[in-house]
Structure formats: C-alpha cells, structure tokens
Design a protein around this nucleic acid. Structure first.
Lengths: 295, 295
DNA sequence: TTTCAATGTTTAATATTTTCGAATGAAGCT
DNA sequence: AGCTTCATTCGAAAATATTAAACATTGAAA
C-alpha cells in the first residue's frame, strides 16, 4: 500500500511542476520522487501525471486526486494540531466573505500583522454587502452583520453592534435636524437597495414602517457612507462602522433610539462539517482581536 | 514520518478494543500492531491509548484523533474511488433525514436491497416533517419535498410531484363533495400545523388565501394521512404519497387543480463541502431508483 | 543536422524500516 | 501460587525505500 509520503510527494510534484523541482523542495533525490510517484500510480492503477522528459502535466484523474488529497493532507495536519502534536504551521487557502466596511475599516489596517503571523496561509476575500447566496460556493468563512437567517452554518458572535441613523453636518444644516417621524419621513435617504423599507419607533415606541425617500441607492456599504458624508442624505449605518466619523464630526447621529430593529452584531460563520478547523479558528481569533476596542 | 498503515492500525486498535484483536483483524502479528501504535505515538509526541496488560482505552487526545482520522481515511478511500481506482467498498455512516411518508412508503420496502448491496454502510435515519434546522447538525443527506429555501446545500431533484387535496369517501358522503371555494372553506381539514394557511385558485384562476378549519393538526405526515383515511377531513398531500390510496379508492381527490402552489418535487440535498461524496452518491442513486415508477 | 542542456526513469547497491516468533512482563482469575 | 490473557520487547530476517550513476528523451541552440 502506498504511503503518506507518496501522497505528499505527488502533491509536491504537482505544485512544483516537475520531478526535479519537487525533489529539491522535499530534499530528496529525483530517483526517489520518481519511484514514489510510480508506486502511487501502480497501486491506484491510474495514471496521475503525464510526463515526457520535458514537462509534467496532470491527467484528468490526477487533477481530481490532487484536489482531494490536498484537502486530506491538510485535514490530517489539522487533526495532528488538534491533539497538540507537531508545531505544524497553518497553511493553505482560506476563502472569506465580508462586507466592504468591515474589510476597509477593520481588516485592512491589521492585515499585515496577520500575514506576518501566518505567512503560509493565503486569503481569498470576497468583499460584498450581498447577504444571500454568498457562502454557497465553497467559502470557508463569512462575516455577517445583523440578524442571522437560519442557514445551517456555525455562528460565533464577534462583537455587539447596533444600527443608527446619521447624516453629514452640511446636510443637516441645509435640511434641518428632524425631530419626529413625520419630519424624518420628509428627508432624503442614502440606502443600500435592500434597506429602503424602514421600521422606526414613534414617540410612543410604536413601530411604523415606511419607505425611504431616496435620490439613489448604492449597493456597497463603503460608498454609501461616502455618499452620506458628502451630504446626500440620512443613512442607516452600523455604529462601529462610523464611530470615528461621529467622533470627528464628519457625521452626526440623527434621532437616536428611533430604529426599531437596531441590533446588528457582527457574526463569524463557517460550515460545520469541515475537516479542517485550524485555519478558521486562527482567522476567528484575528477577527475577534480587531473588534476588541469596540466592546 | 508515520504511515497510512499506522493510522489504519490505530483505528483498528480502537475499534477492536485491543492490540491482539486488532492484529487478528488486520492479519498481522500483535508485535507489529504494537510497533505501529508506538511509532504513531512517538511521532505525534502524544499518548493516544492508555494500555495496561489487560485493557486498552483511548486518551482524550486519542479520542479526538480517532474521530478525525476515521473521517480522513474515509475521505481518502473516497478520493481513490473518485478517480476509478480500487474497488473499495462503500462504508461508514450516512446520516439521512426525510419525511415519514417518504420513508414508510418508498424507502422501507426496498431497504433490504440497499443493505445487501452496501453491507458496510450504516444508515442513521432522522424521520421528521419539520422543515427547518434539520440539516444543521451534521446530517449528510436531507430529502425534502416542496419549494427549497435557499440554504447553501447542493440540491438534486429526485422526482417531480404535486400536491393535491383529498379526502376519504366516507367523509365526502357525509359532508358532500365541494364544488367551489366557498363550499371548500366550510369543510374540515386535516393538516400539518404549518399547512393551515391555504392558497387556492377560484374559478377565474385568482388566488385566494384562507385559513383551514381544523379540528386538529398532526405534525407527522403519515399519521395525518391516516386521519384523512379515517374520514376526519380534507388533506393536502403529495400526489406520490397517496397514489395507491387513490387507486384503491381509500381516498378520493377533491377539486383537482385548485391548489395554487402545488409544485412539490422531491429533492436530495447535501452539504457541498464534504470530502466524501461516494456514500451520498450511492444513496442518491438508491433514492432515485425508488421513484422511477412515479415519473 | 548535430550537440547540448535539462529532465525523468531505470538499475543495482545500500540503508532503513517493518515484520514476526519467541521471550518477557503485568494483571486478573481460580 | 499457578494459569490465562494480553501487550511489549528483542533480534534476526524480510521487505521496502533511497540513492548515485547510467540511461533515455526531447527541445533548443549551434
């Protein structure tokens, strides 16, 4: 039967695109690599790599096997780590999706530190505000803000957060600071497309629903903040997305406490049935650390 | 570095609760098994099994490692199979959830054949009509009927199907066969709890919503069919769940074509990121074969 | 066309690992 | 204490892995 080392050698051959290069990487003689590879193929009774003396390329079966075995070896390292064995480094690819403001305001500034701590871990960011259908396609982690819909994912709360209304001082100066719902409903809004229906408390804490009056909607939360700062209207924002802008006076809060559904924690989501948890755990710790100051 | 065979021996020791028994199962000498085990522990620098001369028991680390490695070995066999290598049998555990009527009417009668074809595959059935939160907890496969909510699962359609209204002849005799919506709304219904709101076409194909008049609801589709057969009222049923009862005259269809949302195909769902697909593939083929005659 | 350089494979000797029977030890049962 | 049942250790033998060196193939340069 073939060995783990045979599998690892196969991976190395694929990733280094050659027997010689793989041998160098693994500190083995080319003969060994060649031997291991042919043993693997013999025992699987399947050709994994076509090789002529000049090039090496994967067979269709090899393609599939490479993907699978890569994940398996990774899962094994992960299992080793989970029992405290080996000081194996975190490596591989982690696919993460999150809203733009989380990325630009919290992740980006500290990304260097993360890269230095885990140099062998590659990150694929899918940055979008769209809430549905994001994790479907093989994402490892999703950062979500607000109420979770029940999605069969494991969720961990990263930080509490609430949504507030805000606007630029210049806008307020021009249109006045609203004092009640009637006035508020006359104002212009800067919204994400799916935020147009608003649920707000009146002075008796009764919930009113109305549609926001908009000149435009923007489907990216960062750009929408820019629009609010530029004075285009009142915006619904996560508190921790604009706390600095509030402090600097670039934005001011409008009618505090008026939002009916203002609870919008930041969540960390991942599929439950993954064989590898180390990468996601490490990334969770990183995300958690970014929001520590927001508690 | 340790080997695949070391891992497999470890698994065998755990599952046979002893070195000697494991050696017998693997057709090795006890000395070899002992060697392999200690090599594995040495290289992981972790104690996996506490052993005195009488018994063997897993350490906490061993417990974790056992679970992980089991899944990994299985994933590896699966990978081998996926490239057409080896004639490795399908083994392990498959957790399936499905509605009662699918199980009792379609799966049960053919279960023997499946067991004979894949004697090493254990099945865990979670039989329930409840639609939400079922796949959350480590289910491998879910059989669902009706519209799918977007859940991040891979879906394959097993068979087309529609929902119809039906009742027992004895019930119709007593209360009359309804001819229009007004009459229908006066009838008694036998429902699942979440079916009480009905959307029905009137004679102009306009959709009307009303709440079913019920004497009771039952949260199990099989028992609810029994209630309908016993003459307790009109029921909404999947056509393929009661086709035989219709043929035998135990149930009769009521106002064909009146249901507004009658499309209710049977779906096969599974998580996308599983490392093992062979088990689920095999089970999909089985499920598909059960409904062939319904096409 | 010939030659060279780069790459992969084979061969056969060498080194390492694995295996097993037998001996040893440890613990429960009578 | 004596017997039985397991697991481990030992040492020799068997199996497997590794390597250098020779060989083969091919693309490109001369």
């Amino acid at each position: 039967m073939y060995n783990l080392s045979d599998l690892e050698t196969f991976i190395a051959v694929v990733e280094n695109k050659g027997v010689l290069a793989a041998a160098r990487e693994q500190r083995l003689s080319p003969a060994t690599v060649s031997h291991r590879l042919s043993k693997l193929e013999r025992e699987l009774a399947t050709v994994l790599v076509f090789r002529d003396s000049r090039r090496v390329r994967l067979s269709p079966a090899g393609e599939i096997f490479y993907t699978r075995v890569g994940a398996i070896i990774e899962a094994l390292h992960d299992a080793e780590h989970s029992i405290g064995a080996r000081s194996s480094s975190v490596s591989g690819l982690l696919r993460v999706t999150m809203p733009p403001w989380v990325f630009s305001k919290y992740v980006m500034p500290k990304l260097n530190e993360f890269e230095q701590a885990y140099p062998e871990l590659k990150l694929d960011f899918l940055i979008t505000d769209h809430f549905v259908n994001v994790v479907d396609d093989a994402q490892d982690v999703a950062i979500r803000v607000g109420k979770l819909n029940d999605s069969g994912l494991l969720s961990r709360k990263i930080v509490n957060n609430s949504r507030i209304l805000c606007a630029a001082p210049s806008y307020i100066e021009k249109y006045g600071m609203p004092e009640n719902l009637t006035q508020l409903s006359e104002h212009y809004w800067v919204c994400l497309p799916w935020q147009r229906q608003l649920k707000l408390f009146d002075e008796h804490k009764k919930i009113h629903t109305f549609n926001a009056k908009t000149r435009f909607t923007i489907s990216n939360s960062d750009n929408m903040t820019q629009a609010a700062i530029a004075g285009h209207g009142i915006a619904i924002k996560s508190k921790i997305a604009i706390n600095e802008d509030l402090k600097n006076g670039i934005l001011v809060e409008v009618m505090p406490g008026v939002m009916a559904q203002d609870d919008a924690p930041v969540w960390f989501l991942r599929p439950q049935n993954s064989l590898t948890t180390r990468k996601t755990d490490v990334f969770y710790d990183f995300m958690k650390s970014l929001f520590l100051s927001c508690e």
